[in-house]
Nucleic acid binder design. Structure first.
Lengths: 139, 139
DNA sequence: CTGCAACTTGAAGTTAGCTTGAGGTCAACA
DNA sequence: TGTTGACCTCAAGCTAACTTCAAGTTGCAG
């Protein structure tokens, strides 16, 4: 395990140093030592950051992402939680596939009004049950 | 086209009435009339809202979503933009697939440290180039 | 005709996720 | 040995996306 300087981590991960410091206050990452005042990181931090980045793009809050990282004693619960998160991601993927198709359709369909195009109508019919769930489950 | 009351739209779409009013100020939706003071919506608003919801879950800002809805004169540019958005969504999907696999792996893999598990290492190796792009392209 | 629940507006407040600024410290190079 | 530039801390500031609040209005049930 070699140590990397924060500026290097920033460069490699695409996160700004200020974001890395912020993540540290949230307990999402830790620096393993200091060189003077400067944070040095174990290179596994890059995996963590990649997961954080992907987690964010999956719509998880930093708090949720943090929970996933807690490898606590009761790891059976933890495994369950991870699978649940994976299920959520897959659900999300299904929704995005509909969106991609809808976008391409709207781009290509020559119909005046999409609300009257049967192809579009059919696509949208699949969407609501997927699309409204997030909001309900919040808070 | 039948008109629906805002409370009904809220119920059907999963968005709160306050959010609907907010979207109206941003020009994302319009109410087609009023009953007294109360907003009434054309039922195509539900499609729009489903698209908004999906767009958000794809990580687009309300402003970006609004742009997509602008069906302006130069529709060739518009088509191009829509396809670009679709490309972004598909890129996003690829990233989420890696995340889902990573989550399931971490849940099931018995290795002490994931950073030493070759399967995990291999997955993560695919991720960075996908995961860091969003941040760079912002602003 | 009278309530009153459910809407209205505009302004202010909230939360997440960072970034920025002021003032300080330090490693490394000339 | 001194200077400099990149880091440090802590507090305050910022943006997006809403929500909440206070004060007013209105459709409709009784």
């Amino acid at each position: 395990m070699k140590s990397i300087d924060i500026s290097e981590v920033a460069k490699l991960s695409g996160f700004k140093a200020s974001a890395l410091r912020y993540y540290e206050t949230l307990g999402l990452i830790q620096s393993d030592s200091r060189k003077g005042l400067r944070r040095q990181y174990d290179d596994t931090v890059l995996d963590r950051l990649a997961l954080i980045s992907m987690g964010q793009s999956a719509g998880f809050s930093l708090e949720e992402i943090g929970e996933v990282f807690q490898k606590d004693e009761h790891f059976e619960i933890d495994r369950q939680r991870l699978h649940t998160k994976a299920d959520e991601v897959e659900q999300h993927i299904r929704q995005l596939r509909i969106l991609a198709r809808a976008l391409r359709h709207v781009a290509d369909c020559t119909a005046q009004s999409h609300s009257e195009c049967p192809t579009f109508r059919k696509m949208m019919a699949e969407a609501p049950k997927l699309a409204t769930r997030q909001k309900q489950s919040e808070h």
